[in-house]
Design a protein around this nucleic acid. Structure first.
Lengths: 109, 109
DNA sequence: AATCTTTATCGTAATTTTACGATATACGAT
DNA sequence: ATCGTATATCGTAAAATTACGATAAAGATT
């Protein structure tokens, strides 16, 4: 940004926007989907699934991990990623707090 | 991006990432929250609520509108914004498709 | 008609994101 | 010990985002 205004907003808004930002790229959506689909967790199978270079995928994985959406664990020379249910629940709660009390079919404008 | 790879991903992933990106900023979260809270819809009250210049808020409103999350209607010299329930429902469905079949407490790694 | 209010758009600078190739690192296998 | 495989990190260029002030546009008010 031109200036960083992040601290002028509510904490919950900042956190929710972080989670959304982590998911704000098709590659990262598909990473999450891939991990969610396979019964066991994944490593570099993700690289095979995505139309991106290995280093780019690694970068996307890091972003998801930084936001807390996935966890990564070293398994020999490989790396194993899983969804973090705690953070997924956190996102669900924050989302409910945002949209929770929408009056359905409210007259508007 | 260095190169635009957006079309190499699944349509649903691209769409969901668009919705997330639209919400990937604290200001836009708070805009949505403000509109959701007030029983009637809002115009430039939003500018008063946010710690940002009017032109910047206008820019954020445009992004939310482009993604379809809010609708804007001109009302005299003022402008009135509302949440778009259809798109909110769309997001909910796409989200369910992503996380829908997560096995709770799956053994991992 | 002149002016005020409200909002959108334009031009811009600073920062961040996206993507890649080229390494580095770490482990397993030979 | 050497080599191969898997993954992370570094350096980078191109593009997008964020923010602002200055203006334009459109309607209301005097």
């Amino acid at each position: 940004m031109a200036q960083n205004k992040k601290n002028d907003f509510e904490e919950r808004s900042v956190r929710l926007s972080e989670l959304f930002k982590a998911l704000a790229h098709p590659a990262r959506i598909e990473i999450v989907k891939t991990i969610a689909e396979r019964q066991s967790c994944i490593c570099g199978e993700i690289v095979d699934v995505l139309p991106l270079a290995q280093s780019t995928v690694s970068q996307h994985l890091k972003e998801l991990k930084t936001a807390g959406i996935i966890t990564g664990e070293v398994d020999g020379p490989k790396s194993c990623y899983c969804l973090n249910e705690v953070v997924l629940k956190e996102m669900q709660d924050l989302l409910a707090g945002l949209f929770g009390h929408i009056e359905v079919s409210k007259k508007c404008c």
